[in-house]
Amino acid sequence: MENKEAAVGNRGKALCALLAAGLLALAGCSSATGIPALDRDPAGADQWPGDRSHLENLGMQSVRFLVTHGNADYFATASADEQTACLFKFAQGEASAAGGCGGAGDADAIVEVSAPGTRMMLVRAGADFSDLEEAGWTRIHENILVF
């Protein structure tokens, strides 16, 4: 009887260990900001094309190129504590940008930016924005909607 109880106990411990490992793997893959690109190592395309003053409280090391759409390049960056995330749009060949920052907490929409000729939104990956897409917004990247 003791061997049977020990076997059941060992299986239970093994199951708990597998569940814990799975949760750790999921946590390791999720971004605090909801922007997976900010979790990867920088690549050649991640070079900041603008004035460094745009990055006042943000680190150059967090700059990530997300996508080219139309004649513009879109970049994301975050504060060191990942509490703030930003979206910047650079017209190709220009150093000036339209952009903005917002709290990167649990909200699905991080920041919406409206500027002449630009309306864009930085959103958490996996968030459902089908209602906005039905209203005319277009998803150009897992983290960007434009109007």
Rank of each mutant, 00 (worst) to 15 (best):
T77C: 02
L23N: 13
Q92M: 14
A45R: 07
L55W: 03
S30F: 11
N57L: 11
A72W: 07
A25D: 07
A27T: 05
P42E: 00
N57Q: 14
A80W: 00
H69Q: 00
R40L: 04
D81R: 05
G93P: 04
A37E: 15
L18S: 14
S79C: 12
G34F: 06
F88P: 02
S96I: 06
F88L: 07
G34S: 10
T33D: 05
P42Q: 08
D73S: 15
D39L: 09
C16Q: 15
L24K: 02
D73P: 04
C29Q: 09
A72F: 11
A27M: 08
G59D: 03
G28P: 05
M60Q: 08
A78L: 00
S62I: 00
L18V: 12
R64V: 10
A78E: 09
W48P: 00
G34K: 04
A27C: 10
H54P: 01
R64F: 08
C16E: 14
A72D: 11
A37P: 05
G28W: 03
A76P: 00
Q92C: 13
A43M: 06
A37C: 01
P49H: 10
L87D: 07
S96M: 15
R64H: 07
L58M: 13
G59L: 12
D73M: 12
A17R: 06
S96Q: 13
G28H: 01
Q92H: 02
D73L: 01
A37I: 04
E82D: 10
G28Q: 02
Q83R: 15
A98S: 14
D51V: 01
A27P: 00
Q92Y: 03
R64K: 06
L23E: 15
A95Y: 04
